[in-house]
């Protein structure tokens, strides 16, 4: 891996974070009225009785530093972000935004990492098999069905799954992360964990079933190209076994561009799963985001969106750093 490539990737990562945080800084200040006023106005409009409003106003004045020049505000803002200080929640004052986020991270991270990796792996194989001559017809038909599901948004699929498996058949729970009233036992409680997994199955299935088709589509296109390459003909001429030709010669080459695609589609995946969480009242960041929106909790809204962007950028950086290990040709000129 050469240094230039590394610097470029890290640079893009930092730039992305910077742009996202600057947008987060600008949007409240560009909206009509001053941000604290907007926040409190929204609170009043809701008719909320605010117990410690004086304290909140003080905290927000200090945070936004509205009496200082904009550039000072900006630098202070970036400084606190760099310390992951995202301010206080309005709805749950004096909880900090960081508290709220760290309580919901494990669920979102767990759901997203498992589904994304599984979706990617299944999609890659399915897409490759769809084009591979020796694949049985039945398998090709099944894969084609997934291909058709590619354009269906996660949340619509989630609704359909809930309708069948939860409302009609009653096999799976439709919301929450554990059965009502369930409390974890001492240490690692395997049953509690299994309960969480059980509650995660429908949300996970919605994300996966709707996501596989996209990879199948991308992989199909790349596989057609790779199967026409001279090195595939030579692999066959060498008398290699079909299985090896498929895995080492065709699939490995065709899947490389999909890694770049994975980096690009992560945002889509995260957005989609945010809404899936909300549909299932799955207590991850998407659900928190929805609650914050309903209660006009601006700092939490901004904190969560910023954190999601940060996570995506980090994941992309990770993918970019792994990529050269998979493709020896990379000295990297992005097309």
């Amino acid at each position: 891996m050469n240094l230039q490539y590394l610097l470029k990737r890290v640079g893009l990562f930092l730039l992305t974070i910077w742009v996202a945080s600057t947008l987060n800084f600008l949007i409240p200040r560009l909206s009509p009225g001053d941000p604290v006023g907007a926040i409190l106005g929204a609170m009043q409009a809701q008719g909320a009785t605010i117990a410690n409003s004086a304290e909140i106003i003080e905290a927000f004045r200090a945070r936004f530093g509205l009496d200082e020049p904009v550039y000072v505000q900006y630098v202070k803002y970036l400084w606190s972000l760099a310390h992951l200080d995202l301010g206080y929640s309005i709805a749950h004052f004096p909880s900090t935004v960081t508290d709220i986020i760290s309580n919901s991270i494990p669920y979102t991270l767990g759901l997203l990492s498992v589904t994304t990796v599984l979706t990617f792996v299944i999609g890659i194989f399915a897409g490759a098999l769809l084009v591979w001559q020796a694949t049985p017809r039945a398998a090709k038909t099944l894969i084609t069905i997934f291909l058709m599901l590619a354009p269906v948004p996660y949340y619509l699929l989630a609704m359909i799954l809930v309708f069948f498996f939860s409302f009609t058949l009653g096999i799976f729970p439709n919301s929450g992360i554990t059965s009502p009233g369930r409390i974890p036992g001492e240490g690692f409680d395997i049953n509690y964990f299994l309960d969480i997994v059980y509650h995660s199955i429908l949300p996970a299935l919605s994300i996966m079933i709707a996501g596989i088709g996209g990879w199948v589509l991308g992989m199909r296109g790349m596989m057609v190209t790779v199967l026409g390459e001279d090195y595939l003909t030579l692999a066959e001429a060498k008398g290699l076994k079909n299985r090896r030709i498929f895995l080492r010669y065709a699939l490995r080459n065709a899947m490389l561009p999909q890694f770049t695609a994975l980096a690009i589609t992560l945002g889509y995946v995260v957005s989609g799963s945010v809404i899936v969480e909300l549909l299932f009242s799955f207590p991850g960041m998407g659900y928190q985001l929805f609650r914050a929106i309903s209660s006009n909790d601006f700092p939490v809204i901004q904190g969560i969106t910023f954190f999601l962007v940060l996570s995506i950028a980090t994941a992309i950086l990770g993918i970019d750093l792994i990529y050269p290990l998979l493709d020896p040709r990379i000295t990297y000129n992005r097309k």
């Binding site: 730039l15 947008l23 949007i27 957005s271 809204i301 999601l308 962007v309």
Partner: peptide
């Protein structure tokens, strides 16, 4: 141009839209 496009592609538009729209009800 392409760096900027890459950045915008990285940041899920839904996230920014959420922030924007929450100020512009």
């Amino acid at each position: 141009i392409s760096t900027f496009a890459d950045i915008v592609l990285t940041i899920p538009s839904l996230m920014i839209l959420v922030v924007l729209a929450s100020y512009l009800r």
